[in-house]
Design a protein around this nucleic acid. Sequence first.
RNA 1: GCGCUCUUAGCUCAGCCGGAUAGAGCAACAGCCUUCUAAGCUGUGGGUCGGGCGUUCGAAUCGCCCAGAGCGCGCCA
Length: 580
Amino acid sequence: MNLTLEKQLCLKFENIFKNLGFDEKYAFVKPSDRPDLSDFQCNGALALSKILKQNPRAIGEKIAEQLQKDTDVESVSVDGPGFINIKLKNAFIAENMDAMAKDERLNCALTQTPKTVVMDFGGPNVAKALHVGHLRSAVIGESIRRILCFAGHKVISDVHFGDWGTPMGMILAQIIFEDGNLSKVETYDIEAISAIYKRANIRCKEDEKAAETARLMTAQLQNGNEEYIKAWKHLRAVSVSAVKQNYDELNANFDLWLGESDAHKMCGTIVEMAQKQGISEVDDGATIIRLPQTNKPMPPVILVKSDGGFGYQLTDIATIKMRVDDLKADEIIYVVDKRQSLHFEQVFEVAQMLGLAPKTELKHIGFGTVNGRDGKPFKTRDGGVMNLKDLIELSKDKVRASMPEAGEVEGYNAKEIEELVSQIAIGAIKFQDLKNPAQSGYVFELDDFAKFDGKTGPYIQYAIARINSILRKAAANKLLEGRVIISSEDERNLALKLASFESNVLRAAALKEPSIIADYAYTLAQLFSTFYNTCPIMSTEDKTTAQSRLKLARLVRDVLKTALKLLGIEAPEAMLKSKD
RNA sequence: GCGCUCUUAGCUCAGCCGGAUAGAGCAACAGCCUUCUAAGCUGUGGGUCGGGCGUUCGAAUCGCCCAGAGCGCGCCA
């Protein structure tokens, strides 16, 4: 495996810095902000000038003088206050493309320090259908999972089902309220359970007594009431299979389907630990832990509620212990709505107080909410949240409308067309959700999820489909790939962008930020589209040019496919369109 | 009340560990299909980066103040 172009350039700078006696940490280069002036820039001279108290331009000149001797470098100049601008020789860039095309991992190095990472998706709840709110954790979480795996980490994802809280008692109480007993539970499907939960929710809000009964039943369930456990098992199983279907459609994979209930046994242990260590106290009948106060008020953590039920923070604390002990987690990542950040700060603080995870990094990746036009979390007109399934159907309908009917296109039957519809619609939805940094929320525009022009998933899928088409034609005409030769500005720009794939992947992995990949893939697809229009392949007379371009095009496709894979988006072999 | 986050083009958003001329998409306008898929390409117009003060050779980016918005704050999860 070869070093990427950027890494090679960095090495050149490091050597020069070392020889000149400058601190090597300033020897970094990045793609130029001024493509009209250079391919890469190094701002190290500006940083050094502060420390050395020397003129940045003078420092820059010294570095440039050395770099000028390098045969891979076309030109070096020091501009403005002290930017070092570097232009590379076309041959050097071309060689790099050849090396990248040969490498299965597209020159992306594996991490030197692989970790075991446990991912928690802040689970969906029993009896609630997945809605747009669940979209983000599934889509962002799945992408982060893929990025970390690709980087070489061992990732274990756990859906972490919400199956042990008061909603469970509410449902059981509601069934008894409606049926008199729990005998009919096993006949209820997901729709029925979901409706029961809705009614329970309303009743408990209106009637404090009903709410109290529900809490009591929750505590009894948690304490092992056999009748309740039996009913609960059915409720859970039905919900899990319903949720699984939803997640399958989004292609979100979970290694573990554990839930809050699985942490129950450990909860008692944690409470004992806290008591033994003397950090818990009883207040108003509840067992709580007071947290050290800083300038930020930290409410106490309620381990055991006054009715004997376990608090939800305790569940998360206990789960940390299990993940550290059983799964040997080096890192636990929670991909959960950022509104829960205080909850996680509390949980992490207690975990530390108890010494549960001394060597494990705990991290909450809080994503922003999906908002309506008013800036508040999105609600449909009737005040509810939009069903995830409905959103997917809406996007699919739009795609389907632009696709040919079965039989119109040779080689595609109805099932295959429907498969394409799904890949494109879900690609559009996912990209929409991943294109901006996870922590920023966005205004929910229904139409945005059924848009396929501009900065969208289908735009990238389309670029891939066009390349696939060229590759098929090339194979039919027996056109082979040759060495990459850079002979135009558009080829050059494309190659330089390809060369920066690894650094983008590394950054995305380090920051756990899929939008970096999304942005990269889009920009690459854009550059390819320009190349596609100005650099014909099959109709080019000169064979070496055609072979070089073919190779570049295939490399673009491989990088785009890999990028989409990291985002959890499928790349259709072809994009069909109906006859207008 | 306290805390967290945010305010950039008509709209939706990038950029923020300080750096050169603040970028995309959409919308608008003008072009490009006898040539590898027009879900595409090329070009034009559009911004006192919420306001003020400060740090700095240099601020959308860092600090403070003000205005506006959103979110969160012990027995729901």
